[in-house]
Write a protein that binds this DNA or RNA. Structure first.
Length: 742
DNA sequence: AACACCGCGTTTTTT
DNA sequence: ACGCGGTGTT
């Protein structure tokens, strides 16, 4: 026995040595310093492409294999489910073992898990449900109607924003002092009513998950101690994106402040507008005096040219923590800047480059078109469609956000919890079953008066027989439908439950009676929901939950996970925000114009402008091999042709790494009001056979003012001139531009 | 209950 | 331009 023990110990030791090599060998000096640092307050400033996730993953494995930290003691928090599952996958890979025992998840996911475990202590019903922001808004709308508040005066959106902002700051309605301002008083009243309504319905919104768990840990010393002891190593990804309440609950979990390993990049903080506090990085340093900082500055992603340009632009921001990326890679190709006539020309140019790229044997999936706002995708989609190029636009409606899916889920939620007013409201008359506004008003009135749920109010109205016959029947049918459904499916599997729900609710029949083409998709989506339910497995941590409750929480918290087509070879179209964390060999940064990027709303505010600049930095650093930046002279915006000028960000880039794209010889004619319409002749008449302009001439333009022609090319309708105006040089089509020779 | 019309706003997004 | 939500019509 003794010998056996010794043998295994030796074997463990040997494998440990091998593991250590595999943990630290692939790291550079800075990364290794971070990974092997003793347990303490650690701040890793990780530049774009510097191996941030790698450091987190290796750090966790290091703690387990070298410092014998129990996997149960590991907490790792991210912002997206995608980041969490990637981290888990990579840890499992390196460990060659399951990481199930570790708590790796999003802030919301982990808060949710804790609340499930301690629902009674948090004064929540065991089967509480999670409201997504859509549900939240509907609930607020209903509340406003109940309170007889005109939505035109106080839009639900504003209320929602206010409530979430308070919760993110850790404030309950009772913590807010009543002010004299009439509007503030109203906001507070609605906030209070909203809290009551949520409690009564047994639902929590996203912000509530965080606030609730924060309060629980703050007020329950026993629980706090328990989790402080349990999570001996706390890891945080994208620390620059944490908000007040997230920081606060991290602090509760790490009282001695010697076990927090946070990774972030102040230069990539682009979510200030939704409450992220970049200051948390500074706060961390002042509140954790013993902290250690490691900067990861070697970039493994981009060429020298791309990195130089990125470094340069970000130096225009003040108050940075200071980081400068470098690479061993050669400079590579210069950044190509294309000055398009308009958004159509811009799209054509980009799609042409993509075709060249694909013709050279490269993959479409390695190409990304990045823009500031979603509306810009259209032109590119049109050109891609025209040339039959497969593409994928990110950021559309997600599976669990679709109306037909939300309807089905609302039925399921009502099955799980009759007090869920938001769900009752959603499906009581969907599909229509003759329950009209009058009946609904009566239900709401009674519910509001007696402070009971809509479900209870509906039943009360039926019992007391105060409704007109037709309405009473319709309402009874609905109530009966839910009760029957529950009885019928109580012992069936989750998949069968979902199946019978969409059948018996007549949702399936409703979408099947195909009136519009789109309803075929909806039928498919409903079927897909049954599939998803069949495939669904509870986490180990959710074993004492009903499968249905677990499934519904999953739908609210991980609504984006069900996305197909990931494996097709498609050009990727997305906003700059969506692109954060991703990389592509070939990147087109498009629409780089004043008013678009930076956006108009940001130009008068230094803080916002700097956030836009960080966004630009994020965009540039997505590119591995080659970056194109495009901007247009004129762009159709809100249905209006608007002149545009190149973005200040473009001017901030170092010229030595830029090259102007050669203008195309066969220029696309901009469609302007000035363009003559030919009805009789098929051939467009030559407007000018000989050029009216020449180099060096002074000309005047109505919008751009006076300038000098610095070059001319093309003939007739295709002639264009490069004119140097006061602020800017731009190519103009002489045939379609009103120019006065001075 | 289904459809037409009008007025309005219009960056970014995850959970 | 375009889509959404609210209002009015059939």
């Amino acid at each position: 026995m003794q010998a056996f023990k010794l043998y295994t110990a030796a074997k463990n030791l040997q494998s440990k040595i091998m593991d250590i090599t595999s943990i630290i060998a692939p790291l550079n000096d800075a990364q290794r310093a971070a990974v092997t640092a003793p347990s303490q307050a650690m701040l890793v400033l990780a530049g774009a492409g510097s191996g941030k996730t790698r450091v987190l993953v290796h750090r966790i494995v290091w703690q387990i294999q070298v410092n014998a930290v129990s996997p149960q003691s590991i907490l790792a928090v991210t912002f997206t489910n995608k980041a969490a599952s990637e981290m888990r996958g990579r840890i499992e890979n390196l460990l060659d073992n399951s990481a199930n025992a570790m708590w790796i998840g999003t802030f919301h996911g982990i808060a949710h898990r804790l609340l499930r475990r301690h629902a009674p202590e948090a004064r929540l019903p065991k089967d509480f449900q999670v409201l997504d922001s859509n549900d939240q808004q509907r609930l607020i709308k209903r509340l406003l109607a109940d309170l007889k508040i005109d939505e035109k005066e106080l839009p639900a959106k504003e209320i929602q924003w206010f409530i979430n902002e308070q919760k993110d700051a850790g404030l309950r309605s009772k913590d807010l002092v009543n002010s004299d301002d009439k509007n503030t008083i109203r906001f507070l009243r609605i906030y209070r009513e909203y809290e009551l309504l949520c409690d009564r319905s047994g639902v929590v919104d996203f912000a509530e998950l965080l606030l609730r768990i924060y309060e629980l840990l703050r007020d329950d010393e026993h629980l706090r101690r328990q989790y402080q002891q349990r999570f001996s190593q706390i890891h945080v990804d994208e620390f620059q994106d944490t908000n007040h309440i997230q920081y606060a609950w991290l602090t509760l979990l790490s009282p001695n402040r010697d076990n927090m390993f946070v990774v972030g990049d102040d230069d990539q903080a682009i979510y200030g507008w939704r409450g992220a506090k970049i200051e948390n990085i500074y706060k961390f340093q002042s509140e954790y005096p013993q902290h250690k900082i490691v900067k990861l500055e070697q970039n493994y992603r981009s060429t020298g040219a791309i990195l130089n340009v990125a470094n340069k632009i970000i130096t225009n921001n003040k108050g940075r923590m200071g980081k400068s990326l470098w690479t061993q890679t050669a400079d590579g190709e210069k950044i190509t800047v294309y000055n398009a006539y308009n958004e159509v020309d811009e799209a054509k140019y980009v799609v042409e480059r993509i075709h060249n790229w694909v013709s050279a044997g490269n993959k479409r999936a390695d190409v990304a078109i990045l823009y500031r706002s979603n509306a810009q995708s259209r032109q590119f989609e049109e050109q891609l469609m025209l040339t039959k190029t497969p593409y994928r636009v990110y950021g559309g409606l997600r599976f669990f956000d679709r109306a037909e899916i939300k309807n089905a889920l609302a039925y399921l939620r009502l099955l799980a919890n009759r007090n869920d007013d938001a769900s009752f409201d959603r499906v009581v008359n969907t599909p229509t079953r003759g329950i009209g506004l009058k009946t609904l008003d009566a239900i709401r009135e009674l519910a509001h008066e007696q402070k009971i749920s809509l479900w209870a109010a509906a039943n009360s109205l039926i019992e007391r027989q105060v409704l007109p016959n037709r309405a009473a029947n319709a309402l009874f049918n609905f109530v009966n439908l839910i009760e029957q459904l529950e009885r019928k499916t109580i012992n069936l599997t989750l998949g069968q439950k979902v199946h019978f729900t969409i059948e018996d609710s007549t949702l399936m029949a409703f979408y099947s009676q195909d009136k519009v083409e789109k309803s075929a998709d909806k039928v498919d989506n409903l079927k897909e929901l049954v599939n998803a339910a069949n495939a669904f497995k509870r986490d180990n941590s959710e074993e004492d939950l009903s499968e249905l409750t677990a499934f519904l929480s999953h739908a609210a918290l991980e609504s984006g996970e069900l996305q197909a087509d990931e494996f097709d070879d498609c050009v990727q179209l997305m906003t700059l925000h969506t692109a954060k964390g991703l990389e592509f060999r070939l990147v087109f940064l498009v629409g780089v114009e004043e008013g678009l990027f930076p956006s108009q709303q940001s130009v008068n505010n230094t803080g916002r402008l700097e956030e836009e600049r960080r966004l630009c930095y994020v965009g540039i650093t997505r590119a591995m091999e080659k970056l194109y930046i495009t901007h247009a002279e004129s762009r159709r915006l809100y249905g209006r042709e608007t002149p545009a000028s190149k973005s200040r960000f473009l001017r901030e880039l170092p010229k030595e790494f830029l090259e102007e794209a050669r203008p195309k010889s066969d220029v696309s004619r901009p469609i302007t009001a000035k363009a003559p319409i030919f009805t009789t002749s098929k051939l467009p008449p030559e407007i000018k056979t000989d050029s009216n302009y020449q180099k060096g001439q002074r000309v005047h333009h109505a919008t751009f003012g006076s300038g000098t022609i610095s070059s001319i090319e093309g003939e007739g309708t295709k002639e264009r001139a490069l004119i140097k105006f006061r602020d800017d040089s731009r190519w103009l089509m002489t045939a379609y531009t009103e120019l006065t020779v001075l």
